[in-house]
Design a protein around this nucleic acid. Structure first.
Lengths: 95, 95
DNA sequence: GTAATGTGCAACCTATTCGTTGCATAATAG
DNA sequence: CTATTATGCAACGAATAGGTTGCACATTAC
């Protein structure tokens, strides 16, 4: 797409994807099938979200045997921190 | 929409809207008609982008006479700074 | 070898996004 | 008053997003 910043913001715009980032931050790694247990959607939908996050460079995957494990990249971990900061910033400025 | 963070990221995901933020940061205020000179699209398209930015709380408007002038909110100005930082962060990590 | 598990791919549907055009209205200029 | 300028609103169209189902394939368990 050649708009790296746009891809990152686009990826972060979806609440399900932000949840996925949160889960990956908490657990270290997970497979699409595992994450499906946490989200109200099919495995294929979760896989698409993971692909979007991977395209944005926030997540990376490694196939081990019959499963594909995902984890946050450094950029993804930085954004997980920024998200926490932004959320408390928002709550702080709620009126 | 009740997803303030999602609205902000969604607003920032579009390159034209990031440009609008840049222009407003440089000039202080502008009208939709003025901004149309800077972007390859119609005034109505620019007006929609401004409305999206306003919904996300990044921009605010005031009608004076027959024109409506837009300016960055505090949140919008903060994001303009963060965008600069993120861009140089990206270039620094280019390989 | 056969069954079970985890993935990946593709087609499809619906809603949203980003842009357009056309027109009606508000405010200023002459 | 009339013409011009700046907006706003609505309908429309093409493309993208977010989700679904169905199926084929790869890997492990028994």
């Amino acid at each position: 797409m050649s708009d790296p910043l746009g891809q990152v913001f686009g990826a972060l715009a979806d609440p399900s994807r932000r949840q996925v980032i949160g889960y990956l931050s908490a657990r270290g790694t997970a497979t699409a099938t595992e994450l499906t247990g946490e989200l109200p959607m099919t495995r294929q939908a979760v896989a698409k979200h993971l692909a979007t996050l991977a395209d944005a460079g926030l997540v990376e995957s490694e196939r081990r045997g019959r499963e594909t494990r995902f984890r946050l990249t450094d950029a993804g971990a930085e954004w997980d921190d920024r998200l926490d900061a932004l959320r408390s910033h928002l709550t702080r400025h709620r009126r």
